[in-house]
Design a protein around this nucleic acid. Structure first.
Lengths: 184, 184
DNA sequence: GGGTGAATGCGGCAATTTGTCGCATTTTCA
DNA sequence: TGAAAATGCGACAAATTGCCGCATTCACCC
């Protein structure tokens, strides 16, 4: 359970990320912390890798917003229900976080997240009693982002319909979506 | 099976919220949609009410409750595991959303959310019997306005503090407030 | 296959909004 | 009463949004 223990056998960890650079950097960091890391860049190959040799942990990066990546979670768990899956995304929102957990992920982190944060998020136990509520309200931008994500999801990712429902210009929605991952 | 059908038996719904005003408004809206709504304002009374007569649904607002609010989820589920619990909060975060789902909530919504959104959030993912599903999402502007009003109220009308919390310029907040002579 | 309507991505430009600074009051509180 | 904070507001620059248009792409149906 602890990758830092040099006497322990390495825990196997499958890293799924379509960005080769980020993938390599993170893989290196995780390897240095004692994990046996393998990487894939697509959902399909990730599933194949898991079927061939089920890992203990999976770090699943959803670079592309949408549920296509999320659906990999139940598929992996079908292969081996003991896999502990961690979702990592640049397009983090409460709605997709809820989705991911319902589908069986053990945690969900917004990017950027470093290796230490990822490992820490693996060790949180369900039912942690001391969970301090963030005493600060969401910023206007954050709230807007959450709302957009939720409505967009309800409309199956249809930008035009979402813009109409939100009473905003389609062009504006496009721009907001494009700009978000860049913004912290 | 449909909350709009007056001949159908009403679904029971327990609303837990420490803000009497918000509680009353939401209770009314849910009643109008065909639910048998009861309300409590504390975790303790909520648990007692559930023990006395387990509802089908719970809407749990943890605006001020802190961690004890989240822990009400497993306590309710211990009483009756079939209760469908929905968490609603003005201080939403991904971390608490993840926690709430792990503890057994069926969904998690940031405030402001109207009755339609809350009901829609109950229906996702879980083979729930039909509910009124006309949910038209709030426009960005209305969402923003309600959020501002809530935070402003929490800060006793202090514009400077509110602007800082909302991560927006005080001048901008002033202008937004000035532009709504009559909300209602 | 061809036709049709909707959705998408994006450049450009005007209109609107927001960020920023400054300053004179007013309010709060010790 | 004195200091710190909050407020209201003008002015101007910076950023965002609304609103075109257009070329593809996609889904669906005849």
């Amino acid at each position: 359970m602890n990758g830092n223990d040099p006497t322990a056998e390495s825990s196997s960890l499958l890293l799924v990320d379509d960005d080769p650079t980020f993938c390599r950097v993170l893989a290196q960091a995780l390897t240095r912390r004692g994990f046996a890391v393998s990487t894939t860049h697509t959902s399909a190959t990730a599933l194949l890798a898991a079927q061939a040799d089920p890992p203990e942990y999976v770090v699943l990066d959803l670079n592309l917003a949408g549920d296509s990546g999320l659906m990999l979670i139940p598929e992996l768990l079908t292969v081996e229900s003991a896999i502990r899956i961690m979702v990592l995304t640049g397009y983090a929102s409460i709605a997709t976080a809820v989705e991911a957990i319902k589908l069986g992920a053990v945690n969900y982190l917004p990017k950027p997240a470093d290796a230490d944060q990822i490992l820490a998020a693996f060790t949180v136990n369900g039912g942690d009693p001391a969970m301090p509520i963030n005493a600060r309200p969401l910023s206007i931008n954050r709230l807007e982002w959450e709302h957009i994500q939720r409505v967009l999801h309800d409309n199956d990712g249809n930008i035009s319909v979402t813009a109409r429902q939100l009473n905003m210009h389609r062009r504006t929605l496009q721009r907001k979506l494009a700009k978000r991952p860049a913004q912290f």
